[in-house]
Amino acid sequence: MKVKKLFAQAEDFLNSDNRKRKEKKKCLIHVLKKLDKYEDKLNERLRDAEDDEVIDKLNRKLALAQAQQKKGRVLMKELG
C-alpha cells in the first residue's frame, strides 16, 4: 500500500501539468477566500454608512468584488 502511495506521489510529482493545475486551484482558493473576507468588511462598512456618496462608493466596490468572485468560481469549475 505504502509503495503504491509512493508511486502515486512520484507520478504526481513528475506529471507537471497535473501539478500545475493543482497549484493553480490552490492559489485560486486562497484568492477567493481573501475576497470573501474583503466582501464581509465592505458589507460591515455599508451597514454603518450613512452618507449617500460613501454608500454609492461602497456599493460599487462590492459589485466589483462580487464580479471577481463570480469569475473566480467559473475558473475553478474549469479546472475541475
Binding site: C27, N59, A63, K71
Partner: peptide
C-alpha cells in the same frame, strides 16, 4: 508567489467587464 500572482490576474476584471459591472450598479441605483 508567481502562481498566486497568476491567480490574481486571472480573477482581475477586463475593462469591458468593469464597465458592465458599473453599468449594472448604476441601473440598480
Amino acid at each position: 508567489s508567481p502562481d498566486l500572482r497568476d491567480a490574481e490576474r486571472s480573477i482581475a476584471l477586463e475593462d469591458d467587464e468593469i464597465e458592465a459591472v458599473m453599468l449594472l450598479s448604476q441601473n440598480k441605483g
